[in-house]
Amino acid sequence: MPRISQLMIRTALLQLLLGSTVGGLLLAEKGLHILPWLWLLRPAHSQMLLLGWLVQLACAVAIWILPRLDSAGDRGNVRLAWLCYGTLNGAVLLAALHIPLVALSARPLAWLPMLAGLLQFIAVIAAVAHLWPRVLSFRQKGVIREQAV
């Protein structure tokens, strides 16, 4: 497993822990009505579980497991995968912090979700740009190998 996939899967597991713990607190609050301010964390819960856990795990496994470009094990432009990692997690962080920061500062902070959306878009483009050339049939892979020889 390449280093980028290890880091992405570990970050995804941490986001799963954090997101599901927040979700558990919200479910308990639904029954007990003790800490109503917890509902401010609901967008953070969904962002961490959808993007931070599911999308990040899918990207990490795809970067790890899709066919490599040559017999030396070249995975193509790995900098795009690192860009995806940085922007995806930046987007989750900004989107998760938006509502709590609005509640604390009493300002709309409308630029925050816009920036998070832009980062998400960049993350998806970077992931697709990295993975696209690696979606190959075995026959195509054989042709590339022969051309290299």
């Binding site: 822990l17 599901s20 713990t21 979700g23 607190l25 029954g31």
Partner: peptide
Amino acid sequence: MGWGLALAALLQVLAIWALVLALWPRVKGA
């Protein structure tokens, strides 16, 4: 019933923690 919901939440969070603990050491290079 509120406490039942809280117990359900606790069980689900416990499950996630157990699964993450099981997987964590296996995220490594070949």
